[in-house]
Amino acid sequence: MTTSTPDYDYNFTDPTDSPDEPCSFQAEPVEVIIQTYIHSFICAFGLIGNVLVIVTYLFYKRTKTMTDVYLFNVAVADLIFVVALPFIIYNEQNSWLMGPVSCKLLMSAYSINLYSGMLLLACISSDRYVAIVQARRTFGTRSRNLFYSRLICSAVWVFAVALTLPTFIYTERFEVWNLGGDSVTIMCQLSFNKSETAKLMKILVPSLQMAIGFLLPLLVMIICYSCILCTLLRAQSSQKHKAVRVVFAVVLVFIICHLPYNVALLSHTVALFTVRSCDMEKLKLHVLTISRSVAYLHCCLNPILYAFVGVKFRSHFRQIMLDLWCVSKKYISSARSSRATSEIFVSGIKTSDASNMSSFSA
């Protein structure tokens, strides 16, 4: 397995190595097995959590706030990545079996998730700042706020796609001769025809990833949540301590998941195009791979930190489960026609929508 990031490959040449003993970056079998289990966990729980968020959002169309719209788009971004992750991992461990178009699309899925997901989390932080710190001000009707939130989400997606264009354009499906020259491995990674382009992209892509995919959202979160904490600590509320713990959890999990990977990526990027020893390069790539897997965990934790922590979201989710259970129970016991069953289901959903809850994320 080549320990490289999904965004670009790290071509490494150490002139101090003997031509008879080239530097090999093949991962140990134990490392491959551990990563397989970790990524399987991420795929399973990321798929379940984000699908539940999307289903809950779609079933309750009348109970939306700006944060709800952001949460829905975060879940969509994480779901895209979770679906693409098994193919990305398979590409790193085996030859690429699919065509060049799927190669470009799947390699771009990581970048789109990174930029859109992180920027949307920054939008959620800003929206919570407005809702808590600026609560006394009037910011228009709910329909107007929903329009603005959807407009912002559209802009975020367009911006994420624009930032992903270098990955999409330069990702190619090509053949690489293995050590010894007796077999060929088909790779799906960034490939460049000119050395100047390679140098530019290998600096530009990770720099954008660190600046826009980590530092900018982190800065927005620190500013917004610091103001929120000050407001909560001054408030006389029985829910104050719980809200403070949630704020700390959101920021802490974000830092724990993404800081190690970005530090490792920065260290590796700074050392590009310089002579490195083979052992040091192997160590850096192992650290980069491990920290990247930790960063992937955030897509599983987003539904818990941002959706299921909300009382109204949990209430709506329980109502959906109750509606589905009642429908199935009545269908089995009475063996009614499919038309009657459909009417019961619609009735259950309408009853849920009539509640006084205004947001499943509150």
Rank of each mutant, 00 (worst) to 15 (best):
T2K: 10
T5W: 03
T5H: 11
N11L: 09
P15G: 10
D17W: 07
C23H: 04
F25R: 08
Q26W: 10
S40T: 15
I54A: 09
V55G: 05
R62L: 09
T63K: 15
Y70F: 15
V74D: 06
I80T: 08
V82W: 01
A84Q: 02
L85P: 01
P86K: 07
F87I: 03
I88Q: 12
Q93F: 12
Q93A: 11
N94A: 07
W96F: 13
S102K: 04
L105M: 04
L120F: 03
C123W: 01
A135L: 01
R136M: 06
R137P: 00
S143E: 10
R144G: 00
R144Y: 03
N145D: 04
L146C: 05
V161N: 01
V161E: 01
R173W: 00
F174S: 07
V176T: 12
W177I: 14
G181S: 05
V184D: 01
L190R: 03
F192M: 02
K194Y: 06
A198Q: 12
L200D: 07
L200A: 08
I203E: 10
P206A: 08
P206H: 06
L208H: 09
Q209D: 14
M210N: 13
I212T: 08
L215P: 01
P217S: 08
Y225V: 06
L229Q: 10
C230A: 12
R234W: 03
S238P: 02
Q239Y: 07
R245A: 13
V246K: 11
V247F: 01
H258F: 13
L259E: 05
P260W: 05
Y261V: 14
L265N: 11
L272W: 07
R276Q: 15
M280C: 12
R292T: 15
H298Y: 15
C300Y: 04
I304G: 09
L305N: 07
R314S: 13
R314Q: 09
H316Y: 14
D323Q: 12
E343R: 14
V346N: 08
G348Y: 12
S352C: 13
S358D: 08
